[in-house]
Design a protein around this nucleic acid. Structure first.
Length: 597
RNA sequence: GGCCCGGUAGUUCAGUUGGUUAGAAUGCCAGCCUGUCACGCUGGAGGUCAGGGGUUCGAGCCCCCUCCGGGUCGCCA
């Protein structure tokens, strides 16, 4: 049965003790992680969020009832122990344990709560199916690793508040029940009881509110904001996630980048003890794509892309020719010393791999000491081959992988992914390094085949670069934005832009993405109305808190950094949300469910 | 929506070409044990092989469907 505390007060957490506490009475509470019964001596590994303390029950010195009670302790019982903290004898020290020099010699015991045998061991070393761990998330969270990650997350949030407060930012909350703005990700909708047939949307980000706060004169705003997007999940994407949201007035790109790179530098200093050189390196989007095939390049290793379009032009090799004539390119990656490392089987695997990214195939050239092997040599003249080898700086022992496509995006996507795969599989990524940069000058607009119109790449309030404004009507695809992403080790951890603050320019932007004046006003009327009342030049950015925590704790799975995450189908295995609701609730909301649809 | 991977004691896994009663480790239960820390020793319990259908004399294994979970492409202003 469960015992009551009856005035017992904890004096120490299990691992929060020091030499000065030795010989003193201590009262600890926590969970029995391990239990070893030696007959008339019982050892309990008492665990709380700070760590583990060994507790000893000695039959020879304890009242019978206390020892008998201790004998009943099993895994994960919640217990309270009053005892004396002792130094262990030297031969009994456990060097693998943070508190291995100490133990708590029990005098009194309260079994606060018994536990069923848990469905899996509460231990970092155990690799239980995530499905089961998520169903019993409260047990999973008892594992030291997850406790550490959530403690790190807490620390990061506290540093965030301290840093931005120190820089004169005000933390202001914005609504969670918002108006739906069906441009961009799918919204989560919330039905209105009071307004039959109408819906709120959960925010994809506080974008418009924070801009309105700038119009309202708050100058520097931040918020640790929960955001929602009803899109498919990934290893680094959850339907609800947290962003550190920032907006500033009377600023241009440099101002925003300077303040926010200072934040990341402080985070790395305090959490990882890593000094980051400021200002951060900046790279235009164009350069990032050309060199790394990605707008979030991982700079911890080389294997840069090389453009050999000109070298292979007119070769008669239909794959290359088709790509070039279709307006695309032929690019490659040279793996130094890789000629002997790639079997035909492995090359075939990589060819399959790039097909995931719509590449049609993977050409290759291996410069072995006994001669060159090349999947397309017979199609190229010796002079062209020589030109390719020169451009790619191929040396003996190297292997080069080529991708050609009429669609540049396919070349970049597949070769960029191949670069990451090669870097990982060849062990070229130095996990101890933190490589940060800003990627700048993103395109303002992207052509959308499906919609048959240009769409805002970032969002429709992003400002074009001054020198490109004139292209908005003549060559929209060429317009660059005042947009910037912060990238850490190949992960986009934040992104933002300078916003349009002129109503006239905003109208041109809406026009560029195919919104009529009326359509734009219908959707964003309140927003555009506000812009008529003296809008300061402003801009900001949002960091993905979850991704930052992932980076700083070295986990590749976003579910590890969120206390109660969702699975791939956006469900919660513990609460079984989402679930059906009563007809009464539906009636009140004026909703009828068509289960067959 | 597409592609790929996975689901066998509580847990992690093994399970041969389709062949007797599905195994191991660990956990769990009981007993013994005064320095364990992967405690040890003795004994015991524990299985809808994810579910359904099919092929077969015979299915954990082969085929089909479904469910559950993961990765990924599309998607993510």
């Amino acid at each position: 049965m469960s015992e009551l505390l009856q005035g017992w007060k904890r004096t120490h957490r299990c691992a929060e003790i020091s030499a000065a506490d030795v010989g003193q009475e201590a009262l600890m509470m926590g969970w029995a992680g391990t239990w070893r019964n030696l007959g008339s001596l019982i050892f309990i590994g008492l665990r709380d969020r700070s760590g583990v303390m060994q507790v000893v029950f000695d039959e020879s010195t304890l009242p019978h009832e206390v020892f008998e009670s201790a004998e009943s302790i099993r895994s994960e019982f919640a217990i309270a122990v009053r005892g004396v903290l002792r130094l262990r004898k030297p031969e009994m020290v456990n060097k693998d344990m943070k508190t291995g020099e100490y133990e708590l010699e029990a005098k009194e015991l309260k079994i606060l709560s018994r536990a069923q045998t848990p469905p899996f061991y509460i231990d970092d070393g155990v690799n239980t199916q995530e499905q089961l761990r998520l169903k019993y998330r409260y047990l999973d969270l008892r594992r030291p690793r997850l406790q550490q990650i959530l403690a790190a997350r807490h620390k990061i949030m506290q540093i965030t508040r301290r840093y931005y407060d120190g820089q004169g930012f005000l933390e202001i909350e914005t609504p969670v029940l918002c108006k739906s703005t069906p441009e961009g990700a799918r919204d989560y909708l919330v039905p209105s009881r009071v307004h039959p047939g109408e819906f709120y949307a959960l925010p994809q980000s506080p974008q418009q509110y924070k801009q309105l706060l700038m119009i309202a004169g708050f100058d520097r705003y931040f918020q640790i904001a929960r955001c929602f997007r009803d899109e498919d999940l990934r290893a680094d994407r959850q339907p609800e996630f947290t962003q550190i949201d920032i907006e500033m007035s009377f600023v241009d790109e440099d101002d925003v980048m300077t303040v926010n790179e200072g934040f990341i530098a402080e985070l790395l200093r305090e959490v990882k003890g890593v000094e980051v050189q400021l200002p951060l390196r900046r790279m235009t989007w164009r350069e990032a794509m050309d060199r790394f095939g990605s707008d979030k390049p991982d700079l911890r290793f080389g294997l840069e892309l090389i453009d050999v379009t000109n070298e292979v032009r007119g070769s008669g090799f239909s794959v290359f020719e088709g790509a070039i004539e279709g307006g695309g390119s032929v690019r490659c990656i040279r793996v130094p010393g890789g000629a002997e490392k790639f079997s035909r089987k492995r090359i075939d695997e990589l060819a399959e791999f790039v097909k995931t990214y719509r590449a049609k195939g993977l050409a290759w050239l291996g410069m072995k000491s006994e001669g060159m092997q090349c999947s397309f040599a017979k199609f190229l003249s010796p002079a062209q081959l020589a030109a390719v080898i020169k451009k790619a700086e191929v040396e003996t022992g190297d292997i080069v992988f080529f991708i050609a496509d009429a669609n540049e995006e396919t070349v970049f996507a597949s070769l960029g992914a191949l670069r990451l795969e090669l870097g990982r599989s060849l062990g070229l990524v130095d996990e101890s390094r933190y490589e940060l940069l800003w990627v700048t000058e993103f395109p303002l607009l992207e052509w959308d085949e499906e919609e048959g119109r240009f769409m805002a790449k970032h969002h429709p309030f992003t400002s074009p670069r001054d020198e490109d404004i004139e292209l908005m009507e003549t060559d929209p695809g060429k317009v660059r934005a005042k947009a910037y992403d912060m990238v850490m080790n190949g992960s986009e951890i934040g992104g933002g832009s300078i916003r349009i603050h002129s109503p006239e320019l905003q109208e041109r932007m809406f026009k560029a993405i195919g919104f009529s004046h009326e359509a734009a006003w219908k959707r964003f009327g309140y927003f555009m109305e506000a812009f008529k009342y003296g809008t300061p030049p402003h801009g900001g950015l949002a960091f993905g808190l979850d991704r930052i925590v992932m980076q700083l704790t070295g986990t590749g799975n976003i579910r590890e950094v969120i206390a109660f995450p969702k699975i791939q189908t956006a469900a919660c295995l513990m609460t079984e949300a989402p679930g059906p609701v009563d007809d009464k609730q539906l009636n009140e909301l004026h909703i009828r469910v068509d289960a067959d649809a």
